[in-house]
Design a protein around this nucleic acid. Structure first.
Lengths: 152, 152
DNA sequence: GCATCTTCGCAATCAAATTGCGGACAGGCT
DNA sequence: AGCCTGTCCGCAATTTGATTGCGAAGATGC
């Protein structure tokens, strides 16, 4: 989809505040409400805007820590990987999971309340997935940047 | 903040659809619109709901690839780290940046259009930050899971 | 220069957000 | 038990914003 400058302004604004009133958005991007809303609908239909979400404060719901876990599988055949993918998708603590080429086979980002909560998750869920041979956890000591705003 | 079952239902719903109409939300969680809205406002004021955002499709704006870059700094003193943090915050391609304990000093998640776009970013921006000694890039071959919904 | 397509803004209509208020329910005290 | 108090609900009125239809302005191409 071809995006002009106004579309980009709309996307930037909605990335900052996805619940902004259309009238305010229109004002910000320099349109009147109706063509502005029309553009937003088109961006949604075209899939440029995938969805709208509320971003929660992880600490306030007892998920204040992030862990990165690198995973090595016993084998890299399709069945093993697919089974792993299916099981990982079921674990709500896993926010992201990537298959990697190179050193490890997969990397996941996990949220947990504390170290013990994470350890429990690792031993009771992650390590029990069939095909998982070894896991190694990296703990970020500080988050410098965390954004959901894509550059546009 | 103490969250009861209805609050949790609200948070789950708004994580799925942050732009849901309050009337629909009220209906889903089993309240009438006014107390439902009151709870949402309280959750916002308490910071449980941090903000609302539109989630864009990275591919549709030419940022379809994700890269993980591990970074080693020349020294780990506070000045070096703070300078690094300041500079990284300015780079819009960087979605996340964590300081790590252990192997590497920092890890960033970067979005780019393609490999060349990433290489340019790495050589022209990341590697030029003062204090950066070495970087190593990991490329996910597939994203199995990617969610913004915290378990609650 | 004219026809056509696109996208705008205005105005009317409809739907949802917001607010104020009375009532139900729960917990604590006498 | 009976009463007082604090909390949270739902209803209804009001305000605000979303949505739609339509005519006009500007851009594009023949």
């Amino acid at each position: 989809m071809k995006l002009d400058e106004i579309d980009k302004r709309i996307l930037r604004a909605l990335q900052r505040d996805g619940r902004m009133a259309n009238t305010d958005l229109a004002n910000e991007v320099g349109l009147s409400p109706s063509p502005c809303l029309r553009r937003v609908k088109l961006l949604e239909e075209a899939g440029v805007i995938d969805r709208y979400v509320a971003v929660l404060n992880p600490a306030s719901i007892g998920k204040g820590l992030t862990f990165f876990t690198r995973i090595w599988l016993k084998t890299q055949d399709e069945d093993t990987i697919e089974h792993f993918a299916t099981e990982v998708a079921k674990l709500p603590q896993v926010m992201e999971c990537y298959l990697m080429l190179g050193d490890c086979d997969a990397m996941v980002r996990v949220v947990a309340a504390d170290i013990d909560d994470y350890r429990r998750f690792q031993s009771e869920h992650l390590s029990r997935i069939k095909g998982v041979q070894n896991v190694k956890t990296d703990v970020p000591s500080w988050t410098i940047k965390y954004t959901s705003e894509l550059p546009i």
